[in-house]
Write a protein that binds this DNA or RNA. Structure first.
Length: 289
DNA sequence: CCCCTCACCTGATCGC
DNA sequence: TGCGATCAGGTGAGGG
């Protein structure tokens, strides 16, 4: 989504904003009117991401600046069912909750539809603050607690491994904790665990250093491969900014593969309920030890 | 402070 | 055709 947005929106300005459902502003500190006022007329500087959060840093505000003169950004999170779709001026999408009309000096008019069935996703205007580990990096305040993802050049492997082994919980819980590492959700957690032959409920405290390192390496591989294939789409709900599906669903070894043979040993992949969601794994290859 | 459960939501699909 | 049950990729407030 970030890669698709960047060339289209950088240098554009926001000519109008329509909020169809205020619940999609869950992360915005203020009413819908405030969101519209603070976004209208702003220029878009770039497209940035950390984990599953995306933000578009904004140019100077024509309306009251933050008191300290901090830069602001439009923050987007897709939640479970969100989409950002770039359209022409006439195209409607069902379940559009927020719409931006953009004007690009070279590419002309562009419509950005924020579509979200379940409304777990959201948009917000937020202030940008310095990150402690790289003074030239800025993130929205609501992203400050999110760790870097394993593909980030500044991701600190040793820090991650130390924090992981200090935890007193199951390893999949830890993988899903965005303050430990970001970008890994239910699909990529199951895929990384399968690749590293680790059981989802293996206690982090008893995970050996080599196995923890292997797990991190596999998580990194899974993310890189999924990004390269445009993400994981099972249906029309998971699409890029042009409405196209990713291809990573064809590469899944464990997630959603219950009943099918493990690609490694041939025994069936099983699905267990865990944390109110599915955990998919090979009961032979992936055992607690 | 750390860990875990649960609330937050809608729409597609499936079985009866 | 209709109705209810079930399922879904995430996050963070609040309780223990």
């Amino acid at each position: 989504m970030r890669a698709g947005l960047e060339p289209a929106v950088t240098g554009a300005s926001v000519s109008s904003v329509t909020v169809f459902d205020e619940r999609s502003l869950r992360r915005h500190d203020g009413p819908g009117e405030d969101f519209v006022d603070r976004l209208s007329g702003r220029g878009i500087v770039s497209a940035e991401r950390r984990g599953k959060f995306l933000w578009l840093p904004l140019g100077p505000s024509p309306v009251p600046e933050p008191v300290d003169g901090a830069r602001e950004a439009l923050v987007v999170h897709l939640g479970m069912s969100g989409q950002v779709l770039l359209r022409d001026r006439e195209t409607d999408d069902r379940l559009t909750r927020i719409r931006l009309e953009l004007e690009h000096p070279e590419h002309g008019p562009l419509r950005l539809n924020f579509v979200d069935q379940r409304i777990f996703g959201s948009m917000a205007i937020d202030r940008l603050i310095q990150t402690p580990d790289a003074p030239t990096d800025f993130v929205p305040t609501q992203v400050a607690h999110i760790a870097r993802d394993p593909l980030d050049p500044l991701f600190d492997d040793r820090l991650f491994l130390a924090r992981l082994q200090r935890r007193n919980t199951g390893v999949k819980r830890a993988l899903l904790d965005q303050t430990l590492l970001s970008g890994v959700g239910n699909i990529y957690a199951d895929e990384a665990l399968w690749a590293a032959r680790v059981h989802y409920d293996q206690p982090t405290s008893t995970l050996s250093r080599p196995r923890a390192k292997l797990l991190l390496a596999e998580a990194r591989l899974v993310l890189a491969k999924a990004l390269g294939e445009g993400g994981t789409s099972f249906d029309a709900q998971y699409v890029n900014v042009n409405g196209a599906s990713g291809y990573f669903s064809h590469s899944l070894n464990a997630y959603g593969q219950q009943g099918k043979p493990c690609p490694r040993c041939g025994r069936p992949i099983v699905r267990e309920s865990f944390m109110n969601r599915g955990s998919h794994f090979c009961a032979f290859c992936q055992r607690v030890r």
